[in-house]
Amino acid sequence: MEHYDVKFGRLNPLKRHTRRADFSASANSEFSDRAHDYGAFRPQLHGELLRAMLNIIYKYSRVYTIKGTALSIISVSLLAVRSLSDITPSFFVGVLQALVGGVLANLYVVGINQLSDIEIDKVNKPYLVLASGELPVKVAVLLTSLYAFLGFCLGWSVKSWPFRLGLFLWYAFGTAYSVHLPLLRWKRIPVLAAMCIWSVQGAIVPILLHLHVQTYITGQTVFLSKHAIFVSGIMSIYAIVIALFKDVPDVEGDKINGINSLASQVGQKRVFWICIWLLEMVYGVAILTGLLSARFWIRLIMVIGHSILGFVLWRNANLVNLVNNEATESFYLFIWKLYYAEYLLVPILRF
């Protein structure tokens, strides 16, 4: 039997066990406190993860294009209004259908484009969520498939031939533009690439969705007005400019991956100034058209508005460093802002 004596510096067995008990109790208490703190922190942690995931999905959506889609649909819908009596609950239903369908189609198109261009974007746009690895490819495929499924369900449920046709063409041209399949991947061919983008900006939104909203205005005959034709012509030029300019910052990656864009064939500078002159031509035509209006306030807004847009475009274009891809990418986003501004002027367009 062992004896522990205090005078030899040894602990009494009873005291030793007491210290063990005290240590065990202290450890359990500390563990309990930590578990309690973790339990309180867990909802906050889950909230942070959810916000991070939503932010990644937000970036995957390329929201600046969605803004353009929503604004253009609202704008051409208001263009169909002839008097305040046309603005009814039925009218808002038609606009809402066009908005939801257009946004879903837009989400699908930007999604399928990023999924098809991961290797190119690693060179041209490494900050995109698929190119950077922030968003797993499987999740992106699920999201893009969901946008397609919901869009087709909506198109099937709405009994409006312009809406159905517009939505079908939107998905079809978006797929043909991007996917790696025989006879597709039209973005490789400048003319076909421009046609795909024009189909949405120059035909589907200003014509088919405009006609769709007309079907929801009581007592109004569905027809293509001269105002809608004029808007289609203007936005067709914008579509061509967007189609050409989007490749200006991407020449390096396009060449590596065999994309024969016009910018890679004739040079970034030449394509840049072609786009500037096309937009300036649009503003000149819009000013002349505004001068022909019988209403003074329309003449005033059309002339002053497009004069300001033309001046701002020319001033900013001369400040761009074409050697710097970040500068040209920033100017591309500026062209989208001009696109938004044009659609703000569309509802007041009355000859």
Rank of each mutant, 00 (worst) to 15 (best):
G9C: 03
V285G: 06
F163S: 00
R51T: 15
F351Q: 09
S330G: 06
R188K: 15
I112S: 05
V346M: 07
I189F: 09
I308Y: 12
F173I: 13
V103D: 00
A35C: 08
I298V: 13
D86Y: 03
D86H: 08
K7H: 14
G290P: 04
P43S: 01
C153G: 10
V222D: 01
R42Y: 13
S75T: 11
I74A: 09
F223T: 13
Q214L: 13
T328P: 00
V6W: 06
L211S: 07
I197E: 08
G267P: 04
Y4D: 12
Y340T: 14
S132H: 04
V222F: 09
I276W: 01
H36C: 11
S261P: 04
I57F: 08
I73C: 03
L192T: 00
I259Y: 11
H17E: 13
W314Y: 09
A40R: 14
F91C: 07
A263Q: 01
Q201I: 05
L45A: 10
I237E: 00
V81S: 08
F168C: 12
S29D: 06
D86K: 03
G94Q: 12
V282T: 05
H46Q: 13
K246R: 12
Q97I: 14
D5W: 12
I118T: 12
I348T: 06
N124F: 10
R51F: 15
T65L: 13
A131C: 05
A317I: 02
G253E: 07
G253I: 11
V100C: 00
S236V: 11
L183Q: 12
Y343F: 11
L319V: 14
S77W: 02
K15T: 11
V285A: 13
I237R: 02
R350A: 10
R20S: 11
V139W: 09
V63I: 12
V320H: 00
P182V: 10
T175L: 11
Y339C: 11
L154G: 01
L313K: 00
H306T: 02
I348C: 08
W314S: 09
L165D: 02
L50K: 07
C196W: 00
L292Y: 09
V251G: 03
A194G: 06
I274N: 05
G310N: 03
F296M: 14
K15I: 12
I234C: 04
N316P: 03
S116P: 08
V303H: 05
S90V: 15
H17T: 15
D86R: 07
S132K: 13
A294Q: 15
K187G: 04
S116W: 08
I276H: 06
K15Y: 06
L169T: 07
S330L: 02
E30F: 02
I256P: 10
S77N: 04
R295T: 15
L313S: 02
A228V: 10
A140L: 02
H3V: 15
I120K: 14
S157H: 05
L345R: 00
F173A: 13
I118H: 12
I217E: 01
T221C: 04
Q220D: 08
F92E: 03
N113H: 00
V179N: 10
L107Y: 01
D37I: 10
S83G: 07
L167N: 06
A80I: 01
G284I: 04
L143G: 03
V103N: 00
A341Q: 01
R350P: 00
F351N: 05
Y171I: 09
K159Q: 15
